[in-house]
């Protein structure tokens, strides 16, 4: 927060270096978030660009009640929703906001028997936190798995886990209920876990 306050002060004073640094810091994350709302790369870039214009325009009204990052992400998501509403019949904004999330949580049902006991128990991930090379390899799998998630799950996972935002902030940005957000987050994490399990296990070994 104090970091933010300092940056905001410089931005409001017209510090161009600070503004450039702000773009550098958030651009990639904004593109990633934009990609959860729109289907192609150029629409995502366009959305991010538009977001920056609004940020510039509204900078002097930013009061620091939220984190700067959260505020920027919120602007992006709002713009995406506005655009979607007005362009609903056109193609590039084909989005995923109505993706149904009410399918049963049991994408793992086949791993349990009729009594709900593990039939195919979770396999060890062999994740040694001290081993940097291994961790890098894991992170590559994590990223690939995240890229494969349905858009809304991806957005939830990205905001909560990757960006470290709170559930309140995430709900606000994604315009979903808390319960909904938890479902999205849980499903996203569960799928990533499964990918890691498939990709990186050494069968028969026990996690230390």
């Amino acid at each position: 927060m104090s970091d933010d306050a300092h940056i905001i002060e410089r931005l409001k004073a017209g510090d161009e270096k600070a503004f450039e640094a702000l773009i550098d810091r958030h651009y990639a994350a904004m593109i990633r978030l934009a990609e959860t709302f729109v289907s192609d790369e150029s629409s995502a870039e366009e959305l991010v660009q538009e977001t920056w214009r609004v940020v510039i325009d509204k900078l002097d009204t930013f009061e620091g009640r939220s984190k700067l990052k959260t505020w920027i992400f919120g602007i992006l998501a709002n713009l995406a929703r506005q655009r979607r509403r007005s362009d609903q019949r056109e193609k590039p904004w084909s989005t995923i906001m109505e993706e149904p999330i009410e399918e049963s949580a049991g994408h793992m049902t086949e791993r349990f028997d009729a009594e709900g006991r593990w039939q195919a128990p979770p396999r060890a991930l062999q994740l040694d936190p001290e081993d940097e090379a291994m961790k890098t390899q894991f992170l590559e799998h994590v990223q690939a798995a995240m890229d494969e998630l349905p858009a809304r799950q991806r957005a939830a996972v990205m905001l909560r886990d990757v960006q470290g935002l709170s559930s309140e902030e995430t709900c606000e940005i994604l315009d979903v209920s808390k319960a909904n957000q938890r479902v999205l987050l849980h499903r996203g994490r569960a799928k990533i876990r499964e990918t890691l399990e498939d990709a990186a296990v050494v069968p028969g070994e026990v996690r230390s």
């Binding site: 991930l125 994740l127 961790k135 894991f138 992170l139 994590v142 990223q143 995240m146 996972v157 886990d161 990757v162 960006q163 470290g164 994490r189 990533i192 876990r193 890691l196």
Partner: peptide
């Protein structure tokens, strides 16, 4: 929990 941590690390 590991998955959440790994994604934090990715961040």
């Amino acid at each position: 929990r590991d998955v959440a941590d790994l994604m934090g690390e990715l961040g």
